[in-house]
């Protein structure tokens, strides 16, 4: 049994496997299939200060080795989360992390402050990279100034581990990562979805209600691995890697590229037990190669 424990800021994870926001509900949707306590942590659905209905149907299109979505941050708001969802997840022996989104720096900060008050939530992941909302979301994540402004506001309002989720829809993701590091982010996670489009040629229209959506799944993995590799060399804070991880081999690629931990997203839709298989698979790989500690392969490429 290899040593799998890793640290993200002050956050200690029992293993490097997390779930990606928006693909794992509030964790409890998967409790019939896996023991949630085995996870390094799980990142719940994007939460905003006010409730959001999200975009109109259709919100999803299957693509080659992946899918597009334009859900648009549908959620019942931070107050609902604190009152109704938090009690259901607070006692799991893992790290429940809340993904926080907003439409202005003040809005992000107010939402983060509400989550800060929840003792069993040790970290938030700041979503400055959602491609499916007009007001805020990715708008902040595509410039260094925009990203810095949100992190600056949230850092003042939030005391625990602050992870910032980066958009791949930029010219220089390493520069954005450095900008959020300078404002006090404890870690960065990448990549959020790549903006894409799919057309129904019979109906001569987009398959998605708002025209475009975010691409996820194995189709994006090589792009994600490259960006993790790039960012890991540009910042001193830990990098969390995600994008198309379907199995332990994929996860190990991200670790070798420089990720301290990984998130599993779209794969949860194909196999609701994939997370524990990845944990076991990483451990087996390390044992088979005589590696005693997962840190010995992090960033080895």
């Amino acid at each position: 049994m290899a040593h799998l424990q890793v640290n993200i800021g002050n956050l200690s994870l029992k293993n490097p496997v997390l779930t990606a926001s928006g693909t794992f509900g509030y964790g409890i949707e998967f409790a019939d299939f896996i023991d949630l306590n085995r996870l390094g942590g799980f990142i719940v659905k994007g939460t905003t200060l006010q409730p959001r209905e999200g975009n109109d149907y259709p919100r999803m299109a299957e693509t080659a080795q992946g899918m597009l979505n334009c859900v648009g941050l549908q959620n019942k708001g931070a107050a609902y989360f604190c009152e109704h969802i938090y009690p259901l997840i607070k006692d799991y022996d893992t790290c429940p992390i809340v993904n926080v989104s907003g439409h202005s720096p003040e809005d992000y900060a107010a939402c983060a402050a509400m989550i800060d008050a929840l003792p069993a939530i040790p970290a938030i992941e700041l979503n400055i990279s959602c491609p499916n909302v007009k007001d805020g979301g990715m708008a902040f994540g595509v410039t260094c100034e925009g990203a810095a402004s949100v992190v600056r506001a949230v850092r003042k309002a939030y005391s625990k581990t602050l992870i910032v989720k980066l958009s791949p829809n930029v010219t220089d993701i390493a520069a954005i990562a450095s900008a959020v590091e300078a404002e006090g982010a404890d870690a960065v996670s990448l990549i959020n979805t790549l903006m894409g489009m799919s057309i129904d040629i019979e109906r001569r229209c987009s398959r998605l209600s708002i025209g475009t959506g975010g691409l996820s799944g194995p189709a994006v993995k090589p792009v994600a691995v490259r960006m993790v590799h790039q960012v890991a060399r540009a910042v001193r804070i830990p990098v969390i890697g995600l994008g198309g991880i379907m199995n332990a081999a994929d996860a190990i690629e991200f670790l070798m590229a420089g990720a301290t931990a990984i998130e599993i997203g779209t794969a949860n839709f194909i196999d609701p037990t994939v997370t524990v298989k990845v944990i076991d698979g990483i451990n087996e790989w390390l044992d088979r190669h005589g590696v005693a500690d997962v840190h010995d392969i992090i960033g080895c490429v």
Binding site: T23, E29, K45, Y57, R59, Q74, T266, F269
Partner: peptide, 20 residues
């Protein structure tokens, strides 16, 4: 409706109720 997860996690398959 088109769906991805079938578990209530992805929120892709939505239909509006009478209250919108």
């Amino acid at each position: 409706n088109l769906m991805a997860c079938g578990l209530g996690a992805c929120l892709c398959c939505v239909e509006k109720d009478v209250h919108g």
